[in-house]
Computed example of a mutant assay.
Amino acid sequence: MSAVGWYPDPYGGGGQRWWDGANWTHNVHPAQPQPQPAQPQPQPQAAQPQQSAPAQGAPVFHAKVHGRDTYGDPRMVSFDGESIELAQCEWVRYHVRESRMRGPFGIGSSGYSADWYFEVGRYPVMKAPLVAMVFNTGSAKKEHEAWTFMVDLSRRYLEPRLLSELVARVRNGETVNVGDGVDVDQHGFRGGKVSLAWHEVGATKSAGGRVWIFKPGVEKAVLFVPLQNSNAVLIPRLFSALKQG
């Protein structure tokens, strides 16, 4: 090799070294880094909602009831593939429907059956999301264990919020409807042909599948509301809170 110039470095390294015509010099051009192919960037992924587990020690019911998957905990309830979070619920209703079968010729009784209903959902009723459960106890005159659990769950984790929200709305000047027909405001309530100011309202109690409303000192109720109506179960506590101002 006699021509002066730059040649691949015989000492390695991948660069070039200057040949002066007689010797390799100390002048070198280091190798240029090769461009790396662009790496595909990960695409942003939509966050997936995480369904947290109920807190340790929280009440949980999970069983097949009449062949239907039935679940409840302080966060949500589900029945036969339909589910709803309690935080989304705007109304609740639960009641029992008893049936007695007559004997021959309508004399006496030949049997007994009871259906236990539990429902929660959003407004408008029957159009917005809801979960409707029904449990049959046949001839056994006792509450169904699944129904008892769901009602207790509602009383502990749902109804206090619903009641608090209704009271706050009324005290802020709104008129709210409970029991599918009872309008309640700061001054009293109106339902059917009855309209009473709060000082005219006496006791309220639940019995026989209904909420009964009385005037002070009067034995006969002035109005009843079926417990199968949405939020009817809240009426006694709502009236008590509003009567106190």
Results as ranks from 00 to 15, higher is better:
Pro54Ile: 11
Ile213Gln: 09
Gly245Cys: 05
Glu165Pro: 09
Lys127Thr: 13
Tyr123Pro: 01
Asp9Cys: 05
Lys220Arg: 14
Ala128Leu: 00
Ile107Val: 15
Asp183Ala: 08
Ser83Leu: 00
Asn177Lys: 05
His144Ala: 08
Val211Asn: 06
Asp185Leu: 02
Pro42Ser: 03
Gln45Asn: 03
Arg169Thr: 02
Asn23Val: 05
Ala47Asn: 03
Ile235Tyr: 05
Val182Asn: 03
Asp69Cys: 00
Val28Ala: 08
Leu234Thr: 01
Leu158Pro: 06
Pro49Gln: 13
Ala197Glu: 10
Asp152Arg: 12
Ser83His: 14
Gln43Glu: 06
Arg171Pro: 13
Trp212Leu: 15
Arg237Tyr: 06
Thr175Glu: 11
Phe61Trp: 14
Pro33Ile: 02
Ser195Tyr: 05
Val125Tyr: 04
Ser195Met: 15
Gly138His: 07
Gln34Pro: 02
Ile84Thr: 09
Leu238Asn: 08
Thr70Asp: 02
Tyr112Asn: 04
Lys193Cys: 04
Gly111Tyr: 08
Val77Asn: 01
Glu159Thr: 15
Pro8Phe: 00
Gly121Arg: 08
Glu174Val: 05
Val233Gln: 10
Phe189Met: 10
Asn229Val: 01
Thr70Glu: 02
Pro30Phe: 03
Gln39Thr: 14
Glu200Gly: 10
Ala207Phe: 09
Ala140Pro: 02
Val151Asp: 05
Arg93Val: 03
Phe118Asp: 07
Val182Glu: 01
Phe189Tyr: 11
Asn27Met: 13
Pro124Ser: 08
Ser52Ala: 15
Pro54Glu: 00
Leu163Cys: 07
Gly81Pro: 02
Glu85Asn: 14
Lys141Gln: 15
Pro42Asn: 06
Ala168Thr: 15
Gly202Ile: 03
Val28Met: 09
Asp185Cys: 10
Arg17Val: 08
Pro59Asp: 07
Gly217Trp: 05
Gly67Leu: 14
Ala128Ser: 11
Lys142Gly: 02
Leu86Gly: 03
Phe149Glu: 06
Pro216Gly: 14
His62Thr: 13
Ala168Asp: 05
Arg75Asp: 12
Gly13Cys: 09
Val125Ala: 09
Val170Trp: 05
Gly21Gln: 05
